[in-house]
Write a protein that binds this DNA or RNA. Structure first.
Lengths: 153, 153
DNA sequence: GTGTCTGCAAATCTTTTGCAACAAT
DNA sequence: ATTGTTGCAAAAGATTTGCAGACAC
């Protein structure tokens, strides 16, 4: 957790950018709950708890920065908000493909890791000449809790 | 192609809704180019060619309707627009899972059919109790054309 | 004729941008 | 001291909504 903050500071220095309290606070919020998917507004509210003077525009600008530095990923659930979560790429550049299970009943989002698509990607490359760099998988359905609740009726 | 229009009219009648020229024109645009992914604005422009008085709000309202009737699907490329395409569910309720290959160089979107995820869905159901109804897969990379163009440099 | 639908304009809502003050190096 | 960054307010841009007139049935 701390290594990510340190890495962030290094990256900023390399790019001639400044290490501000707001920047660190925003990344910290994402780091603290790695399985959450926050909207910009939610990040704003959380940072405000410790830093009441932060502006929403600052949150947006720094989310953009964190995306460019590949420290966070974005997730679109098609509900009008873009959500953000701590990135999946480690320092050793091993990308853990994690995907999302979205419950259509309660809206909860679960994550799971899987590299099953690698065969498919090779097939696509061989047959279509399309080289796949990254993928995004979302599975929609009903989660365990919601299923159990229904069964009891 | 015509059967879809007929089906649309039937569905409208069943719901006590009216068959308007605008509604048919919008669906027609989507039907005519099933491998395109139009934004609302693009649909609006295309319908205007034959029906210059249509309003953008009407396009949005009827896209919503077509989504609810499951006649079209939406696609989000994270560029600020939602795109729409003719749905994948046939009259016989067989869902052809088609996914999207998005070229990060030229922006072109290709489609491919695949049901490889069915094993995975069963595994998820068995291990997590999450029942998957639908899925969305996007693969990002570089298309054949863009790869060939680079090789020649 | 009745009730839905349309086009227009205004409103909404998320995200971006301009700018003067401010803070990090 | 210099230059990037912030907070605020205004702008932008996609989508939605209210309403009076128009159209389908």
């Amino acid at each position: 957790m701390e290594e990510r903050l340190a890495r962030f500071k290094t990256l900023l220095k390399e790019k001639g950018m400044k290490t501000t309290t707001q920047r660190l606070a925003i990344l910290q919020v994402l780091l603290e709950q790695p399985d959450k998917h926050f909207t910009a507004e939610e990040i704003y509210e959380l940072v405000k708890l410790n830093w009441p003077d932060i502006g929403l525009a600052t949150v947006y600008r720094n989310i953009q920065l964190l995306l460019e530095l590949n420290l966070i990923d974005h997730l679109n659930l098609n509900d009008g908000y873009v959500r953000y979560e701590i990135g999946s790429t480690n320092m050793d550049d091993v990308r853990h493909h994690h995907h999302h299970l979205i419950c259509m009943e309660c809206g909860e989002v679960f994550m799971f890791e899987d590299d099953l698509l690698e065969n498919l990607e090779q097939t696509i490359q061989d047959t279509l000449g399309f080289v796949v760099n990254n993928h995004e998988v979302k599975l929609y359905g009903r989660c365990k809790n919601c299923n159990e609740r229904t069964e009891q009726v």
